[in-house]
Amino acid sequence: MVNILANPARFLRLAGAVLPWCWAAAAVTGGVGLWLAVFVSPADYQQGDSVRIMYIHVPAAWMALAAYTLVAVFSAVALVWKHPLAHIVAGAAVPLGAGFTAICLVTGMLWGKTSWGTWWVWDARLTSVLVLFFLYLGLIALRGAFDDAERGNRAAALLALVGFVNIPIIKFSVDWWATLHQPASVLRIGGPAIHPSMLWPLLTMAVAFMAYFAALLILSVRAEIAGRKLQALLVAAGRNEPAADGLQGEAR
């Protein structure tokens, strides 16, 4: 399984086959999900129509956590198996995860103002999610801070693994400590506490976010591989030597 990452050409072929399905899934579930969220789903018995922010906020929060988990897993694979592609996948997921975290924070502030009466409080849930956002920014900065790309990759992978302790903290902060943020509504013991008429739009939007993330991740990995190939060709051309990676076999 891990060895798919050893062969970029095979990975690209596989990703190319999956990509159209990701776009199709994102378009269909995104369209249907938005329609359900805005027009079909009912207003909440306490919060009225402001509950519709949930259909953006919660999928974004889930993707922020999922993307970070993916970054940590691929960082571990990169450090242990040294497949260059694992670093590329981890690096591609970081800006996407940062985007989802930003959506989660901003929509959460808007929702918090309407329901709690404040934009922000420093409770354990909100603070740990803000830490996640800074972790993402740190990973972006760290990768760019080294002249030697390999060292930057390794430093970022280590930070990603250290930062992973934050993920269970975010998830369980609402159970471990007294927070203003309410406990989990969907992934909880005893089943979802959301009425099906609101749960289904939420899950549809979650699938849309996930498919969109997968599509952008594949494209981002493809762009990075092309960029490295280009870099290698330019270096080879600069040394006035034939390209080494077989792209231009007939040029030698």
Binding site: D44, Q47, P183, A184, S185, A193, H195
Partner: peptide
């Protein structure tokens, strides 16, 4: 500040 629970329903 108002604190609400995790229950959502029409």
């Amino acid at each position: 500040l108002a604190k609400h629970d995790e229950t959502y329903m029409p």
